[in-house]
Simulated scan of single mutants.
Amino acid sequence: MRLPNTAHTSQPWRIHELTRDFQLEDVWALPTPGGPDEFPRLVRAVATGDPSNGSSPAVRALWAIRWKVGELLGWDGPDAGLGSRVPTLRDRFPADLRDTPSGPGFGTLPFTALYLLGDEWAAEIANRTMHGVMHLGWVPDGTGGHRGQMAVLVKPNGLLGTAYMAAIRPFRHLIVYPAAMRQIERAWQAGAGEPAPVHG
């Protein structure tokens, strides 16, 4: 379920101080009800997931198109990403975040983990179109439990990035994110009996 931007901006997340020049694109409530200590399990589920290989044919087709277009236009080359076109957000870390563990690496998605705290995790991505951040938080659900919350923050790369983000917005909202929510929910329910892992 999409949430108002204030669901993200009103939280005391550390990501705010790193992304003041980014736009908040989306905030989503994740279908991951759990206890106060289950956030690491959510982080692991997201890091190891592969939305381009989910059950929705429409989503698989959109991802295939995106990767092919990116290959043809050189959007995803090594000179377009972190440390080349844009510096990593780790360069903005205040002193107390510099020794924080980054959390798990990604299995298939081209994200790089930034930091992992008790109730907050962030990862970044960059290509020719934008510099983006995926942020996960673990928030009270109003019924005595907790749930995940995801925010997407973006810094478009000029006119290309602005046009690209505008063009994909309807597909993200109507197809990609709803399918991702179902995939996350299935993974969460399938792992309901797992102990919460600890990442260093």
Score class of each variant (00 low, 15 high):
Asp91Pro: 04
Ala123Gln: 07
Leu117Phe: 06
Val59Met: 14
Lys68Trp: 13
Tyr115Phe: 15
Ser56Cys: 03
Leu73Ala: 13
Thr129Gln: 06
Ile125Lys: 06
Ser102Pro: 14
Pro78Glu: 15
Gly77Arg: 11
Phe93Met: 11
Pro57Lys: 12
Leu117Lys: 00
Pro110Tyr: 06
Asp96Glu: 11
Arg85Asn: 04
Gly107Arg: 08
Leu109Met: 07
Ala80Leu: 13
Pro101Gly: 06
Leu114Ser: 08
Gly83Leu: 15
Pro57Glu: 06
Leu82Asp: 02
Thr129Tyr: 04
Arg90Gln: 12
Thr100Ile: 13
Ala113Thr: 02
Thr108Phe: 10
Trp121Cys: 05
Pro101Val: 11
Val59Lys: 11
Trp63Leu: 08
Pro78Asn: 14
Pro51Met: 03
Arg92Asp: 09
Gly70Gln: 12
Ala58Pro: 00
Arg66Asp: 02
Lys68Ile: 10
Gly54Arg: 01
Phe106Arg: 02
Pro57Val: 07
Phe93Thr: 10
Gly70Leu: 11
Ala95Ser: 14
Phe106Pro: 04
Tyr115His: 12
Ile65Glu: 06
Phe106Asn: 01
Ala113Phe: 07
Asn53Gln: 12
Gly132Ile: 04
Gly77Asp: 08
Ser56Gly: 02
Gly83Met: 15
Pro87Ile: 14
Asp119Val: 03
Asp76Met: 04
His131Asp: 09
Gly70Thr: 10
Asn53Ala: 13
Tyr115Val: 07
Phe93Asp: 03
Ala113Ser: 15
Ile125Tyr: 06
Ser55Val: 02
Phe111Thr: 06
Trp75Thr: 12
Arg90Phe: 07
Phe93Ile: 11
Thr112Ile: 05
Arg60Tyr: 14
Val69Glu: 02
Asp91Val: 05
Pro110Arg: 05
Trp75Arg: 13
Ser56Gln: 05
Ala80Arg: 15
Glu124Thr: 00
Ala126Tyr: 03
Pro104His: 04
Asp91Thr: 13
Trp63Arg: 10
Asp79Gln: 08
